[in-house]
Simulated scan of single mutants.
Amino acid sequence: MDPREPPRHLCAPEADLTRSLDEDSMVDGPLISADGLHSAIRREFQTLPTYCQAALLSVLHVVYVVLSILVAVVCILKGDSVDQCDSVLQSVGAVGAIVFGKVFLWVLVLLFSVCTKYHHRQARSRGYLKFYRRMQEVIHMPLVFHSGGNALLLWILAANLKQELRMYLVLAVLVVELLVAVPCLMYYTVKVVQFNGERAAPDVSQEELLRNFSVTSVPTETGFRDGSNLAEVVDKQADLIEYLKQHNTLLSRRLLSLTAQH
């Protein structure tokens, strides 16, 4: 070795020196705690306003059925107040009033279903995939039952039946709809209120916390397993990828804002 040659550690490339300086600057910069970042993301929780609509729709459904029973009993089944009913209902008639009220109620249920789907899709895009899948069938049930009730009412009104028998069948359909749709709406209202009260983190964040604090490591299903539904796995992965993209964007914004505050 030539004594005039300088030591190798003094002849490091310029790229290595630049990289070490960049790493030192990153280390010396303001550090953002995980708790601070998590609390910033937690403040982004958005509640679902659809529980008010579900409760209001339940009340309207009960009021409609009660009024329909009163109109049917007073104006048709008893027949003592036919003149008074004709003067109040005019050319619509008792049956027409019940049918028009049913159509109006069905339109409200349809609007509720469309609005609820929109808000739940927004919740799915924010990472609440389990809640979205758990409530997906509950959202459709009121509209399905009301649509089936409309079909039965059309069949009853079109059939050549006696007026009293026809009215009894119409009231039976309305009561069955009430006993099925209102409990479904109340169940949905309770679940949404619980969801808004918990203000839980997205599903991915909850799974990360469980993995970090769990004593025993539980294997998670990240791919296709024998006996599992391939379409469901692909759907879950698509939802997860969509959420992770938005989650990364949110993390970048929060990192920039918290770095600027420090």
Rank of each mutant, 00 (worst) to 15 (best):
P219D: 05
F224Y: 15
L209D: 10
L240W: 05
I241A: 15
D235L: 03
R199I: 01
R199D: 01
A200V: 03
R211V: 15
V234H: 12
V192A: 01
V233H: 10
E242Y: 06
A231I: 05
H247Q: 09
E221Y: 05
V233T: 15
A201M: 05
A238I: 03
Q206R: 04
V193T: 05
T249N: 15
E242N: 14
T249E: 15
V204L: 07
D203N: 02
K245Q: 13
E208W: 09
D235H: 07
S217Q: 13
S214N: 01
I241W: 10
L210H: 07
K236D: 08
P219G: 04
Y243F: 14
K245M: 13
D226H: 12
D239Y: 10
S214K: 02
V193I: 14
F195P: 02
Q194S: 07
Y243I: 08
G223E: 07
S205F: 05
V192D: 01
K245W: 11
A231K: 07
A201H: 04
L210N: 13
P219T: 10
S217P: 08
L230F: 10
L240D: 12
P219M: 07
Y243S: 06
G197W: 00
P202E: 00
N229L: 06
F224K: 13
T222C: 11
S217L: 06
L230C: 04
F213G: 09
D235C: 04
V233P: 03
F195C: 00
R199P: 00
F195N: 00
L244W: 08
V204T: 11
E207D: 04
A238S: 10
F195H: 02
A200T: 04
D235I: 02
T220A: 14
L210P: 06
G223C: 07
Q246H: 14
T222L: 13
T216E: 06
E198S: 02
F224C: 06
D239V: 07
L210Q: 11
N196M: 01
L230M: 10
L244H: 12
E208I: 03
V192S: 00
A231Y: 07
S214R: 03
L210T: 08
V218G: 03
E242L: 06
N248M: 14
P219N: 06
V234Y: 03
K245L: 09
N248W: 11
K236S: 14
H247K: 15
R211T: 14
E232H: 09
E208K: 15
N212C: 10
V218A: 13
G197Q: 01
E221H: 09
L209K: 10
R225D: 07
A200G: 00
S205H: 03
P219Y: 09
T249I: 14
R211N: 13
P219K: 11
L210C: 09
F224G: 09
Y243G: 05
D239T: 07
D239C: 13
A200R: 03
F224D: 09
E221T: 11
V204P: 05
F195Q: 00
D203H: 03
A231P: 04
E198Q: 04
